Computed example of a mutant assay.
Amino acid sequence: MLGHDDDDEESLLDSDSDINPSELTDKELQEAFAQGKLKPGLNVVLEGKPKASNDVDGLRQCLRDLKKDLEWLERLDVTTAPVPDKREQSGVEAAQSSEVNAEDDFQREMCFYRQAQAAVLFALPRLAKLKVSTRRPDDYFAEMAKTDQHMQKIRHKLQSKQQAMEKSEKAKQLRALRKYGKKVQVEVIQKRQKEKSNMMNQIKKYQKGLSDKLDFLEGDQPQKKTPGAPGKGKKGPSAKRKYKDQKFGFGGRKKGSKMNTKESFNDVSRFRANVAHGKGPRRPGKKGGKNAGKNANKRPGKNVRQKMKNKGR
Rank of each mutant, 00 (worst) to 15 (best):
G249K: 07
F216G: 02
Q30P: 04
A273F: 04
Q117T: 13
A52M: 08
G233P: 03
A273I: 02
S90A: 12
E103S: 13
A276R: 05
D267F: 00
E195H: 03
C111T: 06
K157N: 13
V78S: 04
D139F: 01
S53W: 00
K225Q: 13
C62S: 11
I154L: 14
D57T: 10
S160M: 08
L76H: 09
K27S: 15
K225F: 07
G278Y: 04
T147E: 09
L177N: 07
K302Y: 06
D8K: 08
A116C: 11
D148M: 00
S22F: 14
K204S: 04
Q35L: 15
P84N: 11
M165C: 05
A292N: 03
Y140G: 03
A119R: 09
E9N: 09
A164K: 14
Q152A: 13
P40S: 13
L210I: 00
A145T: 08
L210F: 03
S53M: 01
G252V: 01
V45Y: 13
S22G: 10
H156L: 11
K287E: 12
K146I: 07
L73M: 12
R75I: 11
P21H: 08
K39S: 13
V120G: 05
K183T: 08
L124M: 09
L158Q: 14
G181D: 07
L59F: 09
E169A: 15
P125Q: 06
S11V: 00
K302S: 13
L42P: 00
Y113M: 15
A273G: 06
Q96M: 15
K49Y: 08
G252C: 00
A296L: 11
D215G: 14
N201M: 00
K191G: 10
G249Q: 05
D6I: 11
K208P: 00
L63A: 03
D7S: 06
K204A: 08
A95N: 12
K309N: 10
S90I: 09
S257R: 15
Q96T: 06
S238L: 07
R60D: 02
G312L: 15
H4Y: 11
Q107F: 04
N101C: 12
S90T: 15
R60S: 08
V56C: 02
Y140T: 02
A32W: 03
R241H: 10
L70Q: 14
L59V: 11
H4R: 12
S160H: 03
V100R: 06
L38K: 07
V186F: 03
L70S: 11
P40I: 06
G285I: 02
R114K: 15
G256Q: 08
R155H: 04
